[in-house]
Design a protein around this nucleic acid. Structure first.
Length: 420
RNA sequence: CGGGGCGUGGCGCAGUUGGUAGCGCACCUGGUUUGGGACCAGGGGGCCGCUGGUUCGAGUCCAGCCGCCCCGACCA
């Protein structure tokens, strides 16, 4: 991408009341735009990051036999009344509206009911199970208070996978596979070191659910971690009685703030019972399907990455999710510099790298370096007259350290080593 | 939903006792400049959040409403 063609611009200033690091950096760099409180648009660079996060999640969901679908955001009360979740006192985040003819509609805050209802059309026998379906879909939640940039919003994309199993054992096995998939996802997203599988309350059908909590001072959750056993416990179940099951006491844990980036939950028969999703087993008996749900919010993940990967100059994207892997910065407007830059740009594109080229000729070096740091691509290559004379490229990692000078012929080998 | 702060060109802000609405950034034109947010000269751009009130006259005073941020409560 030629930066001169990018319609977004970086900004030097921000509203003084915009406090969260993720909103500051993402707004300043032109990755996102705020429409209203808790409602954000993703602009070209931000959407590239979001898309990369989504694709990593998609690959891991496919790897555990997830079948991707796309359910509807518009929902009818009939779908939700059987489980009593159309009632605003039971589900208090509904956005509700109506058709011209007066029929009530709601914007889906989650999708257990519609998918369970859908599955009634396809699941009748034990031979139809298990089934795992997931989607990346916009959820609408009328939060009383949106806050923290893109960490708590009223409209957001969620990956939600739902499992449909014959029995508890099948669910338990799949649940463990999903948990392992989630661990891989957060590793690939660059959050592995600071993300903890956290025990949380489980509801009617299992003792625990699991949250994926990323350590962050700006997080709104409190968790308790034991590094030795790699165990983390959510605040709501941090009690002596529960800790004793792990052979631990409160003194063995350290309190940390964290952001909940994922959540997996055994639903049991709560929804299949409510909506009548049953199958006939080998003996001809009708049984409720056993369900589970598995959620991640890609937008919140993006905000969490920014909160945990930045310095005073801007964002430091992990290589897996950076909008571009390489940022070529051309200094000056010499014909030679521009020609050499374009040659490198074409070469790296052909080699399969994602390249942002700052080809703008109306800015000084300071402005370009500041923009480059703010945008936060992993590798910056500076092309200037003095480097061209020496047939070398000047390469700097966004994560830090001094610039290195790489002979022009070795640049692809260098990048292979850094990025592959 | 309770408390606090704030709404003025695209963005960030100033605006005194009520009296022609300003500055910086960005933008346009011309010129100089180019290794960490350059400079000079000229130029364009405003329902001052909305509605009503007081007044000869309101960005400024009063009332109501709307919106934004933060803290708290809430967050299958």
């Amino acid at each position: 991408m030629r930066q001169s063609k990018l319609f977004t611009k970086t900004s030097k200033t921000l509203p003084k009341d915009e406090v969260s690091v993720n909103s500051q950096l993402l707004l300043k760099s032109g990755f996102i735009d705020k429409e209203i409180a808790g409602v954000y648009s993703f602009l070209p660079m931000g959407y590239r990051v979001l898309d990369k996060i989504i694709n990593i999640i998609r690959e891991e969901m496919n790897a555990i036999d997830g079948q991707e679908i796309m359910l509807t955001a518009l929902q009818s009360p009939q779908t939700w009344e059987p489980t009593d979740r159309w009632d605003d006192s039971k589900m208090d985040v509904w956005f509700k509206t109506e058709l011209k003819n007066g029929s009530k509609l709601g914007l889906a805050p989650t999708h257990e009911e519609p998918l369970t209802k859908l599955m009634k059309k396809f699941i009748t026998s034990y031979k139809d199970l298990p089934v795992y379906a997931y989607q990346f879909q916009t959820k609408f939640r009328n939060e009383t208070r949106a806050k923290s940039g893109i960490l708590r919003t009223r409209e957001f994309i969620m990956k939600d996978l739902y499992s449909f199993c014959r029995n508890q054992q099948e669910l338990d096995e799949y649940y463990e596979k999903a948990k392992a998939a989630y661990v891989r996802i957060f590793e690939r997203l660059g959050l592995g070191d600071i993300t903890y599988v956290t025990y949380a309350s489980g509801g009617t059908f299992s003792k625990f659910s699991h949250e994926f909590q990323t350590l962050c001072e700006y997080g709104e959750d409190l968790i308790y971690i034991n590094e030795e056993k790699k165990i983390a416990i959510n605040r709501e179940i941090f009690e002596d009685e529960i800790l004793s099951e792990f052979g631990l006491t409160k003194a063995d844990f350290v309190e940390k703030k964290a952001i909940e980036v994922g959540n997996i939950f055994k639903l049991g028969t709560k929804f299949s019972d409510g909506l009548g999703l049953q199958y006939v087993d080998e003996n001809g008996e009708r049984k409720n399907v056993i369900m589970g749900s598995y959620g991640i919010g890609p937008g919140r993940v993006m905000g969490t990455i920014v909160e945990t990967h930045n310095d005073k100059n801007g964002i430091i994207w992990p290589k897996e999710v950076a909008p571009y892997q390489v940022h070529i910065v051309s200094l000056g407007k010499d014909e030679v510099v521009m020609q050499e830059s374009e040659k490198l740009y074409n070469q790296l594109n052909q080699a399969g790298y994602e390249v942002l080229w700052d080809d703008r000729t109306n800015l000084g070096p300071g402005a370009k370096f500041a923009d480059s740091d703010l945008i936060g691509c992993p590798i910056r290559i500076t092309v200037s007259g003095k480097n061209i004379e020496k047939s070398q490229y000047e390469v700097k990692r966004r994560i830090g350290g001094d610039a290195e000078f790489i002979p022009q012929n070795d640049i692809e080998a260098f990048l292979d080593n850094e990025l592959k």
